[in-house]
Design a protein around this nucleic acid. Structure first.
Length: 570
RNA sequence: GUGUCUGUAGCUCAACCGGAUAGAGCAGCUGACUUCGGAUCAGCAGGUUGUGGGUUCGAAUCCCUCCAGGCACGCCA
């Protein structure tokens, strides 16, 4: 099923050809309802190329326009824009078609990619905190959207399960660990022993030395230390899984940094042999001498002491993803601070001959009221678990207030959908690169561009169907009539879903979808005000029921693509 | 210092990789309820898009200067 936009673009191309003009411009949604539904700047571009008057060219195009039943005859406006207005009958027919269409008109990608998406990446022996929300929620949404568009997606959690901090964790484990505390709250206990070890080390060089020795033993494969490390990993994975359960996040694989350990020597050896890496000040480095702004920013792949670092691991990760996972596309979703690092990694991959499409999908930070990185009053990271719990608690309180008669059994579930949905929507509705200020009041507000507002639009539709004798499926989609302005606007909005979804991945911007869904919900509410459904005569009633059913499906599917659930009641 | 990202209404943010008179939401003001769930809708008001140049039919968007802020920049990840 082609979108209106695509059909108009095809007709435009045919028209230009008929008018003896080359292909130019494109068809985009109108910037303002006054200008109809779609517009093209083709005449402006052609006029510029040929040194002619834009409006004259526009007239030539409009005169050659092959009329068909999709839209009214095109109109010339402004400097030389050509505007298209859809005919209500065409929209009605499309609504009928979409009612039967499982994918709501969304096409599949022409050339499906094999993508690995790296997102989330929490660290072992540390609690997940607010900072993990963006990567996790954004990565998950991108995965859902890519899958829906027909790409083959592997979701990989690149867990930080290896590194120098384990020297301290192991020393602390051996000297400070309280088993009971570990059972009650594993991560809290791991954090405690890490911190206390750190303090011991600050005042006692012997402790620092002991920690180094523990690390060396771990790296050498010492049985006891490996067992401790493994237990730490297992405990952390359990905690992560609990958070992912609440968040509705799933991974296909979780390849921590340690997974690549035994590949690191080979990586360095290979790069040196290929002449890509060289020794410098005792370390093995890769230089970027021909890249102006990287000349003084080499990438170290083996430290002077012989140890490997995260760059080495990430190069090994590239190998694994391309060669073992057979991916042709790699998306890494992390914060902006790592841009330089991944620029280097991708450049190295290119030099090694990899042709895959590597993308570093960066994002901004979550700020507190003071516009600085969100922290607790004591200056610590805000635990993710606390945020999620509070979101659910606050949602619950609102439900008690607004809808106390909701069945007790449903309240917990609905509170989770609303609370978590609010947190996710607040994140995804904004451009990923900009920092944003975290605010419970705003995200959980029932008005405005929020998760709960969108969920409410869905709930209201479901409520209509509960009142109607017939279910959503029994609406008669063949008799769609769009006579009221509000229902025509809503119908056109519904049709745009298929145009919006594919554009999200152009620049990894789920906020485009979020904004669309907000407008859809808004259009629905306006329709709801002026267009009675159940009280209308039979013709309008069945038509409007079909439109409601379709709107609900788009809302549900759209929110699903953002990782947000919809309740039936709230 | 080098690089990078950001700067848009009082506040929080959009603007579909050059389009028409820069849009929403909060907050403020004015209206609409014995409702299909008002958890809503209709409207008013709010702007020199940080500054100054440039490119062209046309710039929040592209280029340059400067200002302010965040982040990164050889042995942490």
């Amino acid at each position: 099923m082609e979108t209106f936009q695509a059909l108009l673009a095809q007709n435009l191309t045919a028209t230009l050809s008929a008018a003896g003009l080359p292909r130019a411009g494109d068809v985009t949604p109108a910037t303002d309802p006054r200008f109809g539904d779609y517009q093209t700047n083709a005449a402006l571009i052609l006029a510029k190329e040929r040194g002619e008057n834009p409006r004259t060219v526009a007239k030539r195009v409009c005169d050659a326009w092959v009329p068909y039943d999709l839209c009214e005859p095109p109109a010339i406006a402004g400097a030389g824009f050509i505007n298209f207005t859809l005919r209500a009958e065409a929209v009605a027919q499309r609504i009928a078609d979409l009612s039967q269409h499982e994918r709501l008109g969304v096409g599949r990608a022409d050339s499906p990619k094999k993508i690995v998406i790296d997102f989330g990446s929490p660290n072992v022996a540390k609690p997940m905190h607010v900072g993990h929300i963006r990567s996790t929620v954004l990565g998950d949404a991108l995965a859902r959207i890519a899958e829906f568009l027909g790409h083959a997606v592997i979701r990989d959690n690149h867990i930080g399960d290896w590194g120098t901090q384990f020297g301290m964790v192991i020393w602390g484990w051996k000297h400070l660990l309280k088993r009971e505390a570990l059972t009650n709250d594993p991560i809290a206990e791991l954090v405690r022993i890490y911190k206390e070890t750190n303090e011991c080390g600050a005042s006692d060089p012997a402790v620092r030395e002991a920690c180094r020795e523990e690390l060396v033993k771990l790296q050498a494969g010492d049985a006891e230390n490996s067992a401790i490390w493994q237990e730490c990993v297992a405990l952390s994975l359990g905690e992560f899984a609990r958070a992912y359960q609440v968040l509705g996040i799933r991974y296909d694989i979780q390849r921590g940094e340690s997974f690549y350990n035994d590949r690191l020597p080979g990586v360095v050896e290979r790069l040196v042999r290929a002449g890509l890496a060289e020794e410098s000040e005792g370390a093995i480095c890769i230089f970027f001498r021909e890249i102006t702004d990287l000349v003084d920013k080499p990438c170290i792949i083996r430290k002077r002491d012989g140890g490997y670092n995260y760059a080495t691991t990430d190069i090994a990760t590239v190998d694994y993803r391309i060669q073992d996972l057979k991916r042709d596309t790699v998306w890494i979703v992390t914060g902006a601070p790592q841009q330089l690092h991944f620029r280097q990694i991708f450049e190295i991959a290119r030099r090694e001959g990899y042709t895959a499409d590597f993308r570093h999908v960066t994002h901004g930070s979550i700020l507190g009221d003071d516009r600085k990185l969100m922290k607790t009053r004591s200056g610590e990271n805000v635990a993710l678990q606390d945020v999620l719990n509070e979101a659910i608690t606050r949602a619950r309180k609102i439900i008690e207030e607004k809808n106390p008669e909701l069945e007790e059994a449903q309240k917990a579930d609905v509170a989770r959908m609303i609370g978590i949905g609010a947190v996710k929507y607040a994140d995804l509705s904004q451009y990923r690169m900009t920092d944003y200020v975290f605010s419970w009041e705003r995200m959980l507000s029932l008005q405005g561009n929020t998760g709960p507002y969108l969920q409410n639009a869905y709930v209201r539709i479901q409520s209509i169907f509960r009142k109607a004798a017939e279910g959503p499926a029994s609406a008669h989609p063949n008799a769609i009539t769009l006579s009221e302005p509000a229902e025509l606007i809503l119908a056109k909005r519904v049709c745009q879903f298929a145009e919006v979804v594919p554009t999200i991945l152009n620049d990894f911007r789920p906020n485009i979808l979020a904004n669309y869904l907000f407008e859809l919900a808004n259009s629905f509410h306006a329709f709801y005000e002026t267009c009675p459904v159940l009280k209308s005569d039979e013709l309008a009633r069945s038509s409007r029921l079909a439109l409601c059913a379709l709107t609900a499906r788009v809302l549900q599917r759209g929110l699903y693509l953002l990782g947000i659930e919809v309740p039936e009641k709230m």
